[in-house]
Design a protein around this nucleic acid. Structure first.
Lengths: 129, 129
DNA sequence: CTAAAGGTACGATAGTTTTCGTACGAAACA
DNA sequence: TGTTTCGTACGAAAACTATCGTACCTTTAG
């Protein structure tokens, strides 16, 4: 058996799980119905599939839920930023041997990064010291 | 059947596949034996497992190979930077709605990003215009 | 010439993730 | 009150990924 845990001791979310987290991050605590509707704006998913995923997410401790009503309300256990930090960390370690600046350079060399993005970043950097 | 293709029309590499790509990126075109030895410096993998993965990678069009010798030489079809660009793109789109500056900010707010990283980035930005 | 070493091919198994069907309870409503 | 609608629970199939055993071919050493 593999454990696949982050430093935080929470298993890292899979792809499908991440989709669900995004909805919860964007819209706050929600019912399965709501999340499923949101997902279906992008692709077809069966309601029970989403339900199952959210139950699994809860088993894993990534979500918790309020069961006081019949319509359970699901809530991410960790804050969006924290989870993203972990994923980002993993990403940097995997692809850039942990060098944030390497990743940055890749990003800056990428035509997808807009002028306004770059200005924004400069401003941020200047305000850092 | 799902296709899971990048904009480049190449399927995205899985985790185990990425490990192999990293070796090829670092050391250049290599035999299975060489790649397998490198992998085994980090974790135990059976030779035929690595072979199989590299064959799959070839089927997928991510690697090509020179079969003129008995010891086949495997070569990444796309350059390291290009592949990483795609993965990075995916990552940014998935987690940051495509905003590079959001990702940067996350990275900068992360204690993992060192002072020297930040200096490096500033220098890069200044030299950009 | 033969055995051993080392290569590829590939099916099968195991493990993981994703999806869905079915069961069944609670609420809404005609 | 019965039936339809909407919810949860959950097993199991389907899809994808990873690992390995076995077969078999080529090269090399003796």
């Amino acid at each position: 058996m593999k454990s696949n845990q982050t430093e935080n001791n929470l298993p890292e979310p899979t792809k499908a799980e991440l989709e669900i987290l995004q909805v919860l991050w964007e819209f706050g605590p929600s019912t399965v119905r709501f999340v499923n509707d949101k997902l279906n704006e992008q692709r077809e998913v069966n309601y029970t599939s989403t339900l199952k995923q959210m139950q699994i997410l809860t088993e894993k401790g990534i979500l918790k839920r309020d069961e006081s009503q019949m319509k359970h309300i699901y809530i991410p256990v960790e804050a969006e930023e924290k989870t993203k930090d972990q994923l980002l960390d993993r990403f940097v370690n995997t692809l850039y041997k942990g060098s944030a600046s390497k990743l940055m350079m890749q990003l800056l060399g990428n035509e997808k990064t807009s002028k306004s993005d770059i200005k924004e970043i400069k401003r941020l950097l200047d305000s850092m010291d």
